[in-house]
Design a protein around this nucleic acid. Structure first.
Lengths: 171, 171, 171, 171
DNA sequence: CATGAATGAGGGTTCATTCAT
DNA sequence: CATGAATGAACCCTCATTCAT
């Protein structure tokens, strides 16, 4: 296909951006929602969240050629498009917030944990994989499991000598 | 300053990239190392790690105008430059690995936790803030504290009913 | 036509150089070959050579706007292109050498005359016209005739008193 | 020396051109005049002309790094400079014309030969060497001798069967 | 006298876009 | 629908020139 031919289907590059970006966002949203739904009602909330992580990460890394540029390119798009995209992201964020809130309500996540920062922590860790994760040499599942373990169970050693005891200095 | 003026100081756009990218990397490395060192010997490992998070995040977000484009631009740089940059990242990664390993040796992080994925989780969460964090409306410290709490202590509710026990049927 | 438009047809300035230079060379080669061929079999070798001179000179000077820059520009072209061009020149040189050799074999040029320097003498004289010849004020034919007379018959006075004998004082 | 430093000595690039081009012209003029003069009064006119050819060619090819660009660059210079340079060339041309005319007056060159075209023929052949002559593999003297032989004695075979006899067709 | 630094015009090139076919 | 061709703005870069020191 020649460059000029695009303009029969789209009226500008930004319109293509729009199409492409929202498709990407929609795909990830749908895949994650679908994967979680497939788990059925009997899964624990933690299982659902791990399932969401896995679905998100898999799509991201399997379609890396698509998602890596897309995330870089968004910033150059014109404002109306960026807003629309933020909408989508926001919708998608709500999906995660629901997952996390449900877990919290069910007692699988502590009350003191704030949902939004937790969501950003998780999605940040997941999205950043585009910059470094090597699918060839490390299984996606394993990384998901490690995030889950760290985030849910915590990295801290079992409560022997409380690290707290030392002085809590510096700003 | 006019576009042409740059070429007195640099011989090509890529050389500017190189300078800019490596300066950015060096600055962050130095700032984090320096901040941790200032803590002194009496700090717990967790405190050192929180301090590193804070230093990293502060530089990233205070010089956002610099770091946001830089992270997007790297991919367009010519290979030799990208390699050099990976070196720097690697060096910086080792700084974090040392912090985390020391914590693990000191018993502040569980033996089962793998250091590299943990580092990637933390740095991913930190770096991704460039995409969403709003310095005006939320204090950096607080986000650092939340990451730390989640990552160290875990998001899981206190060990009353083990989440695992819930498992019944699953899909 | 705008500058940018060229890049639909060529991928770089050097490619344009290449096209332009080789077309120029090809045209001159073809025109000269064709003109000589049109002369038919009955022409003397001298006539053929004069005809080649005329064809060469006419194209050069009628398309001066093209050939004058082209000859200046070649030196700035990248090596592979320069080599290719030397090939063409070499081919063209062989055309002249054939004309001259045939004349020599037929006894129209003395045995002692070396063909290559003779060719370079003639082509040098012809090509240098780009620097000075004024088509408006002097007929091309006449210059060709003068070159021919000089080169074939020699500028020397008829062999009455051998030039050597003249040696007296002079200046 | 830095680029800017030139502007203490010259006020523009064209002024440097001017200096450089006229120096080049002057040098060649002087060298040729001097060489001919050194020959003394007893030389034949042909010897003087050969000597001029040799001096011209030697300077041109020994200082090729200078003369080759100079001849290409002249055309890009501003009009006043080009005019001045034409003056110099003209002066130099007169030197040659004198040599040739003297030879003609002395009977060493036939009356029918026109001096100016002859001069242009000779200088064209000499100057064009910048484009092809390989000093490493061929002696300058020998080429001079060959030009001289061709131009003075003519390339034509001794008058046996007059080439003329054939029909003088075409054109 | 020389240099370091800046400037701005212009050249080579890319790229989003347009348009006739 | 698609293509070949052209456009013009913008980018990277060079180079003649200027100027303060």
């Amino acid at each position: 296909m020649q460059a000029g031919s695009l303009y029969y289907h789209f009226s500008s590059k930004d319109e293509i951006f729009d199409e492409v970006l929202s498709t990407g966002m929609r795909n990830i949203h749908e895949k994650v929602a679908h994967a979680v739904q497939l788990l059925g009602e009997n899964a624990t909330h933690r299982e659902r969240i791990e399932c969401a992580m896995k679905a998100h990460l898999e799509l991201l890394l399997m379609k890396r050629e698509y998602y890596a540029p897309a995330s870089r390119v968004l910033v150059h798009a014109p404002e109306p498009l960026v807003s629309r995209h933020r909408e989508f992201r926001h919708e998608y964020g709500k999906l995660w917030d629901r997952l996390l809130q449900d877990a919290q309500k069910a007692g699988e996540i502590r009350k003191e944990i704030k949902i939004v920062p937790l969501r950003m922590l998780i999605l940040g860790a997941l999205n950043w994989t585009l910059e470094w994760f090597d699918v060839e040499h490390y299984p996606i599942d394993k990384f998901v499991q490690q995030i889950s373990t760290t985030v849910f169970d915590g990295a801290k050693a079992a409560a022997t000598a409380p690290a707290r005891s030392v002085r809590r200095s510096a700003r």
